[in-house]
């Protein structure tokens, strides 16, 4: 049997005297979607950045099983290898699509960048691939040569997803991917993400403050408060039968739909 794809062991991060996350451990299995929930300031985005190699933790380790080189310690890789990993086997979907896109170049160039970064040099094929991904994330292929500045918020988010998935990553980190979008737009993106994750057999770590999003997309859930994981388990179990007082409060604060 294969081992976990990503493992966190005692991950701790401080900012000055403040502890942003403390002693977080978990395993992420292939094909699994893990949700991290908690209110803002609970340390979930810091944790995500530590997991994705964007922020060096002060304690603990993050290991990842690569396709070719076996298990690696994410924070002991050379910067070159970590960045290569980040643009090939991994994806990162930012809350604000502007942080994840090149706003000054066309949608096609945005999607094609990862392909070109690993050596694609056929313009026509890069375009075909870009059009294919535009279609898969439900953006009209006519908009291929338009810049994301001319796109709506929802379209930008879908473009960011396409830009990440074009390199066929195995693991995607998502930071509030539907935050800041209208409710109707959110629903379409969630639908899209669910289809893609299942269809591509992706593993994902998803940070959200929205328990509805967590229920829809994740298999397993970690609840964070003040930098600590206070509860974890299968998503339905955690949401339907919360054990920790903080989780109970979070669940209770959702308006019944």
């Amino acid at each position: 049997m294969r081992g976990p794809l990503l493992s966190a062991c005692g991950v701790t991060k401080r900012f000055g005297g403040r502890i942003a996350c403390r002693d977080v451990s978990f395993d992420l299995w292939p094909g699994e979607v893990l949700g991290i929930v908690g209110e803002s300031g609970s340390g979930k985005t810091t944790l995500l950045n530590c997991l994705a190699g964007r922020l060096a933790p002060d304690g603990g380790s993050v290991t990842y099983e690569t396709l070719s080189a076996g298990i690696v310690d994410v924070h002991h890789l050379s910067e070159a290898r970590r960045r290569l990993l980040a643009r090939t086997e991994w994806g990162f979907v930012n809350q604000d699509a502007r942080d994840g896109l090149r706003m000054g170049v066309s949608a096609g160039a945005n999607i094609g960048e990862r392909l070109m970064a690993v050596g694609a040099r056929h313009y026509g094929e890069i375009r075909r691939e870009a059009i294919d991904w535009m279609t898969r994330v439900e953006i009209d292929a006519d908009r291929l040569d338009d810049r994301p500045t001319t796109y709506s918020g929802g379209m930008r988010q879908r473009l960011q997803i396409a830009r990440n998935l074009v390199s066929k990553p195995r693991l995607v980190f998502m930071d509030e991917p539907t935050g800041g979008l209208d409710v109707s737009v959110q629903a379409r993106i969630l639908d899209l993400l669910r289809g893609l994750v299942e269809g591509l057999h992706l593993s994902a770590v998803l940070v959200t403050h929205d328990l509805g999003v967590a229920r829809l997309l994740t298999h397993r859930l970690m609840v964070m408060q003040g930098g600590m994981v206070v509860e974890q388990g299968l998503t339905d179990q955690v949401l339907d039968d919360p054990q920790h007082a903080y989780t109970q409060m979070l669940v209770a604060s959702i308006l019944p739909v």
Binding site: R83, L84, R102, A109, G112, E113, A117, V118
Partner: peptide
């Protein structure tokens, strides 16, 4: 790091435009 994707992006963009 020989990370030159961005240069190729600029050439791609030139052809697209």
């Amino acid at each position: 790091l020989s990370e030159y994707g961005v240069m190729q992006v600029s050439l791609y963009e030139s052809i697209a435009r």
